[in-house]
Design a protein around this nucleic acid. Structure first.
Lengths: 205, 205
DNA sequence: TCGAAAGGTGACCGGGTGGTCACATAGTTA
DNA sequence: TAACTATGTGACCACCCGGTCACCTTTCGA
């Protein structure tokens, strides 16, 4: 069960929003372990007992909020994989769009980031998420190999590992985003992906 | 001041070791925030008050233990950069040796890993450590470019970013090490570094 | 031998946590 | 209006934390 109770949905819209807003703010500010339920209920202006009528416990509240964040991100990135013709162009689109998501929904972005920072509480969930990502990536990679875009001789697991690591860190660093140099950020993303595509080693042709 | 007090050094060797061992175990099991001083003193078999005669506070104890871990790692990796002729070979040596360090000193390895997982308490320290690493890497990279090993056209900041991210994740994953497949692990490290060296894009020659 | 200094102790402090429950209130139905 | 249910409440619970301090014990030099 990771749904709020019926009681929560019966609440007036404004109150629901106040609770969600307070929880989002707190889970964006601190990872699950350090986030404080007491602070959330204080900010939302409700009693602690009430919260336990809406959500089974802290964990369920968190998962609900996390779902909101992920739903928004999924919506935001929906069309990135639509024309999956060019492997490298698609990856660039993906990370550029992720950056824009972080700018537009910084709190959701932070919540998702905190979730990926390893936390014992969600070890299993994270592992399965990672495997899903791996499958998606490897499917794309296969197709790119068939298209003749990607070197068929490389270790595909290693390739996923590299993209996963770099992507994670890349998105982590979106936190330090300043208004002005958006163009610079986007260029850096491209530069990083170029390094991954071309490799460091000089090409003897 | 990040030294233990004189009182600590006056302690009989065995007692010092008991304290260090208990602290190492705790800081390996949990990151700084979640590590418990109470558990450490309990495991070491001393009173909490005593601990505060040896170390100013939890932070100083932690930094002392962290230093022990880093000193051991430095000793272990001492000769990796001795023959820095081949850029890619050196990097492989570095990560392979790091893996062996993780196998030989798993607790120290975990302590260092926990430290690098972003934690507000040590934000500054981590940032400066990262800058030092960046400088070292960029120096090596420069030399490799001059040697004709590395493509001079790539964005060097991006290259560091890529190596830093992948290295971090690679070393993180050493935690799940099983006795038998050491060879397999070392091969995977090589595979990952090959991906970084050669890139994913197919080479048209 | 005695007294001062150094070392060791654990109950205690203030503050935090997630979670509970007896009670108060509001809403609805008969 | 009365009875009953659904909702709201915050004092309270047990448990943890890092850190302190008045007191006790040991050591050691005069």
């Amino acid at each position: 069960m990771k749904l709020p109770t019926e009681t929560f949905y019966n609440l007036p819209e404004a109150k629901q929003q106040a609770i969600i807003e307070a929880a989002v703010a707190e889970f964006a500010a601190s990872p699950y372990d350090k986030a404080s339920l007491s602070k959330i209920v204080a900010k939302a202006g409700i009693a602690k007992g009430s919260m336990y009528q809406y959500f089974e416990n802290k964990r369920e509240l968190y998962l609900y909020i996390l779902d909101l964040a992920y739903a928004q991100k999924k919506r935001f990135l929906k069309d990135v994989f639509d024309q999956a013709d060019d492997f490298f162009a698609t990856l660039k689109r993906y990370y550029r769009r992720s950056y824009l998501f972080a700018k537009e929904f910084p709190l959701y972005h932070k919540i998702i980031n905190h979730y990926w920072d390893y936390c014992a509480e969600f070890e299993e969930e994270i592992r399965t998420s990672r495997e899903l990502r791996a499958n998606d990536f490897l499917t794309m990679l296969q197709q790119a190999i068939e298209n003749g875009q990607v070197n068929p001789e490389l270790n595909q697991e290693a390739a996923f590992f590299v993209y996963h690591s770099v992507g994670k860190e890349l998105i982590d660093n979106f936190i330090e985003l300043s208004e002005t140099d958006q163009a610079q950020h986007l260029q850096f993303i491209d530069a990083v992906l170029d390094v991954l595509a071309e490799g460091l080693q000089i090409r003897k042709e």
